[in-house]
Design a protein around this nucleic acid. Sequence first.
DNA 1: GCGCGGCATTTGTGATCACAAACGCGCATG
DNA 2: CATGCGCGTTTGTGATCACAAATGCCGCGC
Lengths: 225, 225
Amino acid sequence: MAETSPRPPLATPAKSPPAEAAAHDRLYRVLRQQILVGELLPGQALTLRGLGKQFGLSMTPVREALRRLVAEGALTLSSSGRVATPELTNERIEELAALRALIEPELASRALPRAHLALIDRLSAINTVNAEAVAKRDAVAYIRTNLEFHRTLYLRAQAPAMLAVLETVWLQLGPTMRALYEKVPRNEPPRHHRLILAALRAGDEPGLRLAIRTDVTQGLRHLTG
Amino acid sequence: MAETSPRPPLATPAKSPPAEAAAHDRLYRVLRQQILVGELLPGQALTLRGLGKQFGLSMTPVREALRRLVAEGALTLSSSGRVATPELTNERIEELAALRALIEPELASRALPRAHLALIDRLSAINTVNAEAVAKRDAVAYIRTNLEFHRTLYLRAQAPAMLAVLETVWLQLGPTMRALYEKVPRNEPPRHHRLILAALRAGDEPGLRLAIRTDVTQGLRHLTG
DNA sequence: GCGCGGCATTTGTGATCACAAACGCGCATG
DNA sequence: CATGCGCGTTTGTGATCACAAATGCCGCGC
């Protein structure tokens, strides 16, 4: 089923001109994105041979990609070595939400001095697409544009290490966010994003911190209830 | 050459009764601890075959251990796939210090209600050992006991996810902390630890947050200067 | 004496195999 | 009809090999 080609004995077959990353790295990126935006539900199992067949790879690079995702908390490892998307307890969700509430206002604050109009316009555009996803009840598109909104802002903070840590938190929440949406579809576009944009325009740092914190904690409120 | 024994055709030979983790996991733990407490200086290179020979393993488990550490930021990956301990820029150090300053007061605050006398005594004892490390100019022992002091407190917060994120920050700073100590040996035992203990005893939450934050930021002040 | 080109070596990547443990499904039994 | 037990299958782990790229070192030429 996975054999799209007769599998010649070459080691790295599909090597065209363009810059091509290592196979394990490509697989890592694909899976990471899927988990991040909630394409996988919590508890979904992933097997080495299964993914290997699916992507035309042997077990070695698959194992590396999975190990990396496990290390980042994007996947969990059962005692027998099986990997699956995490099924978070309410306590863990609260912790991860608290981490978001700690880190994201700081990143927003650092981005504020560099947030000129072009950036705010981009954020506004992303927000529009996000509203469309809400209208279409498209969970994945909703999560993706929501994260894109935040990440676009935080990129301006010029703080790659903080952003990297934050993204591992997002990764851990990915499948759970999707499951949340399945249960309680958003009926309204993110109301707090408008507050964020207003605070950015006004250069209001305390207001921005508050708006971010509210947006983050309120989004995950339904879960712990 | 790595054959310390005639290598019988068994896959997992040394399997005695005791609970034994996978080989790649054991190697991961050893390296992680070494990096965490500063046994490795920044820029130190690690090779698959080198570590494999050193620990009597093939490349496969070594690769997994290294990949995991890279994913946690404990090691960096050069463009050609070489792994080495990170050489942090001042900006990155500042970011990681800021993350510590955000997360650690929160963990301390959550631990405060559960910090009874036995815990404070344990912390005090660790602090004593830490002072000895300072007297002996033992960089590794200093870093190890310092982290143990903080971790012992934070374990009481019952927040494993937050602690895990914090430890990845510590990991990234490990080699740099060691290098810092080489340049500027601590001439005094950690003065802020006494403030932390006092705030714990008094149940003074704002004072505890401040003491933790000060301890964290001041320890890394020498670097960014 | 200095720089540079080429080759031997080192090193990471991926495929494949052998093995043991875990899993699960079906059958036999009470 | 319910409940274990057992075996075939699936799955992770680690070793080994083939290969290509990067490294670095030595010697040749200027």
